[in-house]
Design a protein around this nucleic acid. Structure first.
Length: 455
RNA sequence: GUGGAUGUAGCUCAGCUGGUUAGAGCGCCAGGUUGUGGCCCUGGAGGCCACGGGUUCGAAUCCCGUCAUUCACCCCA
């Protein structure tokens, strides 16, 4: 049997309802913060990511889905959303419009990684970006948005972790000293870290290896190297967070894996998730737009892993309900109820269904046609409605209606047809009334509509 | 990429140290009710026991390999 590729998966109806709810919450909160949605392509020129995310990062080095199209272009399925937004910002000169631009996106991302709880090869991210504001107020707005979303979804007890990794100027100074410090102790760190030392020394800081931790605990801290501008920003950020009542933890080993970050970096963690507990992560990227050939345009943003969020929501205080609901189910009853002409129950499904499709039109057709018209009429009133095309027994159809969580059932049989009536039954309240065919519409408008149907 | 665990019906799982017709619950279909759902009862459909090889008189069961799933490391959302 052919299966979905490793690290990918189908979202079946019971799950897709949760996705719809989640996306609705995300959009509502985004609009509340005055962000507008942007949709960018699922693939981009490979160069966009290699230039911005960084050649030596894991993402670019080994996780990208890169391919050549028939025109010989090197393209890559986007592994993250910020660089594409920055590209679109430039391409459409959004910088010429009012600043800052506040944009959010929801969509699939791709990373060739070994799948694990809350980590997939195709995954979905929500992200929000503020372009054109250097103010720490924007940092805090981004963080507040992330926290607001988590709280709205019932995730209590999230942990906000922040750090500053400075700007290219002060980071370079720090980098020099850090390399000096680490080189002197290179035999005490793990093999991976010895490689990182030359490529990306900051990453040694968040190595979990015990001996590396021992070494890095005494290492110089980036926070002591911040230049005046970065220092002011860092202090402004912390003061604002404090005043907003957003509690945080400073973790100088928090180094985000993407090269474009400057100054503020942060993560929002939700510990019950286990190993993959970062539910949102982001930071400031003041050099990104410039690196893509634009004017200097500061930016801040974050991204949220939606599969991970969904996992968390299930474990949290407000899990999504997955109940389906139908307003009406129309049952048409003829003499020959079953379209399969009484095929043995032992027949398999596959054998029964073609029999149903080949049934010859009979005397019952009038009833079924009227039933079908009724379905259309109910739908035209704005209600959801379904019927059984297989002409099963009344009992079977009632059962089906029950399973579909139908609020009402309309029964159209010979008895009703003779009297030109329809039986309407409330599945929840249990009553059943006969209504003249021609006033069904009125009845539904009066009795059914307006009672409300919660989404 | 590294390490561990697991693969039996649509789903969740039994199947003892190898022994012949592979089970349960839920779900699905039908009947008990000549036209009424939920509860109950009865019957039915549905399994190359992940795949390939090996050991054995005999393998779902033991061994090896492959693939998949999963947890952790790495990294990240």
């Amino acid at each position: 049997m052919l299966r979905a590729p490793r690290g990918t998966g189908d979202v079946l109806p019971s799950e897709s309802r949760k996705w719809i709810c989640l996306e609705k919450v995300l959009r509502e909160i985004s609009f509340k913060y005055n962000f507008e949605e942007i949709r960018t392509p699922v693939f981009e020129h490979t160069e966009l990511f290699s230039r911005t995310v960084g050649e030596s990062t894991d993402i670019v080095e080994k996780e990208m889905y890169t391919f050549e199209d028939k025109g010989g272009r090197s393209l890559t399925l986007r592994p993250e959303g910020t660089a594409p937004v920055a590209r679109a910002f430039l391409e459409h000169s959004l910088g010429q419009g009012p600043l800052p631009q506040k944009l959010f996106y929801i969509g699939p991302m791709f990373r060739y990684e070994k799948p694990q709880a809350g980590r997939y090869r195709e995954f979905h991210q929500y992200g929000a970006e503020i372009l054109g504001s250097p103010s720490p107020y924007s940092d805090v707005e981004i963080i507040a948005l992330a926290v607001d979303i988590a709280e709205s979804l019932g995730l209590t007890g999230t942990k906000l972790v922040i750090n500053s990794i400075g700007c290219p100027v002060c980071r370079e100074r720090y980098r020099g000293d850090l390399i000096k410090y680490l080189s002197a102790r290179s035999d005490a760190v793990c093999e991976d870290c010895r490689k990182r030392l030359s490529k990306n020394p900051l990453r040694v800081l968040d190595c979990k290896n015990v001996s590396c931790k021992a070494v890095t605990s005494g290492a110089p801290s980036m926070l002591d190297y911040l230049c005046e501008d970065c220092q002011k920003h860092w202090e402004g950020l912390r003061e604002l967070l404090l005043r907003m009542g957003l509690s945080y933890e400073v973790d100088t080993s928090l180094v985000r894996g993407l090269d474009y970050y400057t100054k503020t970096v942060f993560e929002l963690k939700w510990p019950p998730l286990g190993a993959q507990d970062a539910v949102a992560g982001g930071g400031r990227y003041d050099g990104l737009v410039e690196a893509l050939g634009g004017k200097h345009t500061p930016g801040v943003g974050f991204a949220m892993g939606l599969e991970r969020i969904l996992l968390a929501v299930e474990k949290g205080e407000k899990p999504f309900r997955e109940e389906r609901a139908l307003d009406f189910f129309v049952i048409a009853l003829g003499q020959e109820t079953r379209l399969d002409g009484g095929e043995k129950a032992s027949a398999t499904r596959d054998e029964r269904i073609p029999a149903a499709q080949n049934a010859a039109p009979g005397a019952d057709d009038d009833i079924f046609r009227r039933g079908f018209f009724l379905v259309r009429e109910i739908r035209s009133l704005g209600l959801s409605c379904d019927f059984d095309p297989l002409r099963r027994s009344l009992k079977a159809q009632m059962k089906q209606a029950d399973r579909l969580n139908a609020r009402y059932v309309a029964i159209l049989g010979e008895e009703e047809l003779e009297k030109k009536m329809v039986s309407i039954r409330s599945m929840k309240e249990g009553w059943q009334k006969e209504i003249p065919l021609e006033s069904v519409r009125d009845f539904i408008e009066k009795e059914v509509l307006g009672r409300g149907n919660q989404c």
